[in-house]
Amino acid sequence: MKAIVTVMLKQGVLDPQGRAIGQALHGLGFATVGEVRAGKVIEIDLAETDAEAARAQAEAMARKLLANSVIERFEIALA
């Protein structure tokens, strides 16, 4: 099983990288672009066949290391 953990800065935490990407998109003529937020995606291969167990493991990993709960939130998808 594969766990796909998406880590994003929380709302309210300044994301200068997202803002810079947004400005660059505007510069390229994408006039409809509003707020842009940048995050990261971490794919983890798991020797686990049970989806619930895989999700629980990925969540523990995200809480312990992958995301910093002071500034980030995370979402988990399984594949």
């Binding site: 935490v13 300044l14 200068p16 990288q17 810079a20 910093n68 002071v70 500034i71």
Partner: peptide
């Protein structure tokens, strides 16, 4: 020290990047 939870808060990317 902040990542280890020994001091509160976090250090983000500089506001000006």
């Amino acid at each position: 020290l902040t990542e280890a939870g020994m001091l509160p808060g976090a250090l983000l990317r500089n506001a000006g990047l």
